[in-house]
Each structure stands twice: as structure tokens, then as C-alpha cells.
Computed example of a mutant assay.
Amino acid sequence: MTSPSVAATKPQATAPAAQSLPAAPSTAGHDAGLLLLRLVLGLTMAGHGAQKLFGWFGGGGISGTGQFFTASGYPAGDAMAVLAGLTETLGGLGLAAGLLTPLAAAAVAGTLVNAIAVHGTGSFFAPAGIEYELLLTAAAAALALTGPGRYAVDRLLPVLRAHRPAHGALALALGAVLAAVMLLVRS
């Protein structure tokens, strides 16, 4: 016969606990890294859009970019130049500020999907490759899924204060659908 004190110390058989990964804590380094990524990607894309819209940084402006779009098979080249320029500029500035980050990232990713399609897949590396566009697309998608971090305007908006990966996934799906529509209108 076992004494009550011995029985109380015997390990009890329990069901295994559900295995789940703990949420990664938001650290200053994590948030600073996301800020750096947002700034570099966002300002790069905003500058690229300014090339299309205003001819800045050696760009073709609306007419030069419109001619490129027409030659690439898009209808109404000037309208496409404005659309692409606004998407890149506003999406890029949204990323840099961390404003409506899932939508800004999806706008950038969707535009880059079209850039990859136009550029072609003849080679992965430069000068005729797609590695640059693919890297920018992946960075935008990663930001849509991870969120902007603490150093972002989104933190001031109650709806977006707590980033949810589902918001990013839905925004990326919307960006992919719109990119596909743009590719379909291309002849």
C-alpha cells in the first residue's frame, strides 16, 4: 500500500499539449528592420513611378512611358503609363510611410508581376533577367504578410493597429487578380 504522500508525487498521465509555435515578440530590431525594408522598397518604387509620371530621374514621362506600353502590347499606352506611375508612386509612398501597408504592398507586387511578364523570362540574371523585379515582388509580398512593424502610420489607425496576416493575404490576392486583368488586356 502506498502512502498518500507517495501517491501525490507520482506523475499523472496527461494528453500531449497541442504543439504550436509561440508568436514572435515584436522587438526594436525587428521593427527597425521592417522600417528599413519599407523605406528602401517604398522610395525605390515611388522614384520609379515618378520616372513614368514626371520624367524625373531619367524617366520617359507619360508620353515616353506610354510609347513603351503601346510597344509592349498594352492598349492606350498613355493611360497605362499614368496608371502604372500612380500605382508605383502611391504604393511606394504608402509602403515608406507604413500607411495601408497590405494594400500598398499588393499594389507594388501587382505592378511588378506585370513588369516581370513584360520583361519576359528569357534569363534570370541581368541584363535581360527578372531577378530585380522578382526580388522587389517578394519584398512587397513579405511586407504585406508581416505588416509594417511599430514604426508605421498604420499603428495610429485602429483598424490596422494589430496586423493580421489574413489582411496581407487578401490584399495580395486582390493585387494578383488586378495584375492578371492588366495582363489580359495586353495583346
Rank of each mutant, 00 (worst) to 15 (best):
N114I: 00
R155I: 01
L156W: 12
H119Y: 01
A81T: 04
P158C: 07
G85S: 05
L156Y: 10
P165Q: 00
S3V: 08
G64K: 00
V185H: 01
G73R: 03
S187W: 04
A71E: 10
A152D: 03
A96R: 11
G110K: 01
G129T: 00
E88M: 10
T70G: 00
L170E: 12
Y151S: 05
L172N: 02
A32C: 04
Y132N: 07
A24K: 11
M45S: 07
L157F: 10
G59D: 12
N114Y: 00
H119Q: 15
V113E: 00
G29N: 05
L103C: 12
L170A: 15
L178M: 13
L39F: 09
G94A: 08
A28E: 13
M45N: 10
S5T: 13
A104M: 06
I62D: 01
P4D: 06
D31Q: 04
A13W: 11
L53H: 05
A144D: 02
A109F: 09
F69I: 03
A106F: 06
T111F: 07
R150N: 09
V153E: 02
L86N: 06
L178Q: 12
P102A: 12
T121H: 04
G59I: 13
S3L: 09
G47T: 11
Q51N: 11
S3I: 07
S3K: 08
A171C: 10
F69M: 13
H30N: 15
G59A: 14
L112D: 00
G94V: 13
K10M: 15
L39G: 09
A139I: 12
P102G: 07
A79R: 11
G147D: 00
L103S: 14
A176Y: 06
A17N: 10
T87M: 09
H30Q: 14
A152W: 00
A152H: 03
A171V: 08
Q67P: 06
P165R: 10
T121S: 04
S63T: 15
G147T: 05
